[in-house]
Amino acid sequence: MALASVLLVDDEIPFVETITKRLTRRNLDILAAYSGDEALEKLKAHNDVEVIILDVKMPGKDGIETLEEIKRLHPLKEVIMLTGHATVETAIEGMRLGAFDYLMKPCDIDLLVAKVSDAAAKKRRHEEKILDAQIKEITMRRV
């Protein structure tokens, strides 16, 4: 059983390929996308994705726009922003739009795994709470 199911979004192909291999070794289930639009497509097809690692600066739909879209369509999925162009402004913007955290490229792989685990845990807790609430509601209705 993998630690978490992750969608990795970045326009740099070699980066995505290598980090996929490294994260897979660390027991993460990785799905790759090379643009914002592709990421949204992949999410539509793979609902089991828990955490999205998203590059901020991409041609076409950029990280912030993609984040907004993801949060609109999949509010429970957690997003970790990853960028080389680290600016406080972008970070604040990302966090404000509901990103779980923000990491600068290049980042330590173990730190990234830890963040992904935390994000997945948060997502699961969130889902559990919702499930609990739903069960309670059903139970209450039966009573």
């Binding site: 290598t18 490294r22 490229k105 290049p106 792989i109």
Partner: peptide, 23 residues
């Protein structure tokens, strides 16, 4: 500023490749 981003990408790839070799 643009170039900092541009240069950061290959650096990130190098770091990851090095990390992969380590792995």
């Amino acid at each position: 500023a643009g170039i900092a981003h541009e240069i950061n990408n290959p650096v990130a790839i190098m770091v990851e490749e090095a990390g992969w070799i380590e792995d």
